[in-house]
């Protein structure tokens, strides 16, 4: 497989949706954060780190200080991220073994992780690693990340082929219980609180009713809901 970010944006019709999601996720980053980005959509958040902000990316296969994709002549088979993509080093990066990498994860040293989801429910339970009888990819590091990272953001499209992904109760096998802090989609920013899912923002091009219809769980609205582009 060979991709470039430019080529991907030219052929993927969902790119606007995906770009909107990752741009909004990037606004949750804080200077100095150690961040682990999941495979796929979450990886793209790295392209939108605000200028002047220092974020250190953790790759669970054993690296801190992940740099951008290499130029063709920089490709090194010994240097990949957790999505198995070729990457580069930033000055001050560090390598370590997998057990130490997950000591960082479980030990509460990772400030933020961003993951995709198959389902998220009202209690902040997450399902993202298997569909019984159909799809088995494995959980990789996701169960450890949601158990140990200080903040867990789910970044995903709001629905899949019209079906709800934000639900009252997950029907698919759990990745973790009560672990999600925030859900960011192309339609909404939702915070998971002890009282339930609180709608914080909706996209500028949608409506409150449309967001509610696309959500299979109750949304709590406190006063004025913000918007994002």
């Amino acid at each position: 497989m060979s991709v470039t970010s430019q080529a991907a944006s030219a052929v993927d019709p969902r790119i606007d949706v995906r770009e909107r999601i990752v741009k909004r996720v990037a606004r949750e980053l804080k200077d100095g954060d150690y961040v682990n980005l999941g495979i796929g959509l979450p990886t793209l958040v790295a392209n939108y780190v605000p200028k002047g902000m220092d974020i250190t990316l953790h790759a669970e296969n054993g690296m801190l200080g992940v740099g951008p994709y290499p130029t063709p002549d920089q490709v090194d088979p010994d240097l990949i991220n957790a999505g198995k993509e070729t990457i580069t080093e930033l000055a001050g990066c560090a390598y370590f073994n997998s057990a130490e990498s997950f000591a960082m994860v479980r030990g509460g040293h990772i400030d933020l992780t961003v993951l995709g989801a198959l389902q998220v429910d009202e209690a902040g339970n997450l399902a993202n690693w298997m569909i019984p009888g159909k799809m088995v990819k494995g959980m990789g590091g996701a169960m450890d990340l949601v158990a140990g990272a200080r903040k867990v953001i789910v970044a995903m499209e709001h629905t899949v082929k019209g079906a709800h992904k934000i639900v009252k109760q997950c029907s698919l096998p759990f990745t973790g219980l009560k672990c999600v802090n925030m859900i960011i989609t192309e339609m909404a920013v939702i915070e998971v609180t002890p009282e339930g899912l609180v709608l914080r923002e909706i996209a500028a091009d949608t409506t409150l009713d449309a967001v509610k219809a696309a959500t299979g769980a109750d949304l709590i609205v406190h006063g004025k809901v913000g918007t994002f582009e």
């Binding site: 669970e60 073994n97 997998s98 057990a99 990498s101 997950f102 994860v105 479980r106 088995v136 494995g138 959980m139 990789g140 590091g141 996701a142 169960m143 450890d144 158990a147 140990g148 096998p173 759990f174 990745t175 973790g176 219980l177």
Partner: peptide
């Protein structure tokens, strides 16, 4: 299938003569 952090720590435990450990990972899951 084992969570990656549990996997690596179980291997570490085997090498370090540790009889097991408690981890918050995967609580409440299959």
């Amino acid at each position: 299938l084992i969570p990656q952090g549990t996997f690596s720590e179980r291997v570490r435990a085997a090498g370090a003569g540790i009889g097991g450990f408690f981890t918050p990972t995967a609580y409440g899951t299959l």
